[in-house]
Design a protein around this nucleic acid. Structure first.
Lengths: 161, 161
DNA sequence: TTTATTTATGTATTTAACTACGTAGTTTTG
DNA sequence: CAAAACTACGTAGTTAAATACATAAATAAA
């Protein structure tokens, strides 16, 4: 019917990007409905620091699965919001140790019930006959095992196309 | 185990973006293995023009499901590659009518077998127990019917959280 | 037939991620 | 222990999409 069925190469990405942009906007609005000013993109950092308490920049990046430059820009925003603070590591002078402020910790307590609701609403949407997170996991695993390029080259050589 | 299981709000997007960036890079390399210089992101426009022959900018945007500014920048690249050309609509002077050049048409013939192989490789990766495209479709349909925000607000009011 | 509305295109700016690169500490090795 | 390699952080620039805005042509309405 449309292009997606013919190629899929790009279509998957674009559609999911949009889907998640919508979720983000709605997430922001939902926080607002509780009188909370919080952006969904801050969640991974905040959540990680809540569980680990003190971490360096690169450690946070690894935990949340982002590159360190991306992480730095999130940290800057969170520092501006006074939700986190940082100090130099005395043992290793290159390291910046990040932790939640009191304000950050209080906010988390406020957000916990909100997260519960969001989690339910998200599973409403993503838990279908074909579970979205599962589908992503499965695709990632396949690619980890053998890349798209390798697969394509193999089909090419097998079929002589 | 990690954050994704707890929130998912962002995680889905970021992971899919990466997945698709990998597919794009591999796609480019795979075209190269046939001696073809073609970027996967051009596919939707080219494919649409192959089937519809002559379309305006906005018509193409609608066909490929992108906004018109995004489409314009793709068209600029394709024009630089001399794969498409455009002329003013004589009936409606606002319109720019786009079509494939001879070079564009030849390239498509070269790419057809490549697309077949890519399609197979992609379904290798995305057709799992939980089909990725299906999962996206299902999630999109759910959201179309009732947004994430609406769902969350409803759960909030039902549970009194 | 002027005026208002809609449509088509284009430009400028924004966003959220990335890669590439540079610098400064730390650790390892010859 | 000096040189080389590695690690941590930061900045700059890129990319692929989006919004928001501007302009001009076409259509509808007063």
């Amino acid at each position: 019917m449309n292009i997606i069925d013919e190629s899929g190469i790009l279509a998957i990405s674009t559609r999911l990007q949009r889907l998640s942009e919508q979720l983000r906007k709605d997430g922001t609005l939902f926080y607002k409905s509780y009188g909370i000013d919080f952006e969904p993109k801050w969640f991974p950092v905040i959540y990680t620091l809540y569980h680990k308490e003190v971490l360096s920049v690169v450690e946070i990046a690894n935990e949340i699965g982002y590159t360190h430059p991306s992480t730095i820009s999130l940290l800057k925003e969170l520092e501006k919001q006074k939700l986190i603070r940082s100090k130099k590591d005395k043992v290793d002078e290159r390291k910046r140790l990040i932790q939640l402020t009191a304000k950050g910790q209080e906010l988390i307590e406020q957000m916990k019930p909100v997260w519960d609701v969001m989690k339910k609403a998200l599973s409403d949407i993503a838990d279908n006959q074909n579970n979205l997170l599962q589908a992503i996991n499965e695709a990632e695993n396949k690619i980890m095992h053998q890349s798209f390029l390798q697969r394509a080259l193999q089909i090419k050589s097998e079929t002589g196309k």
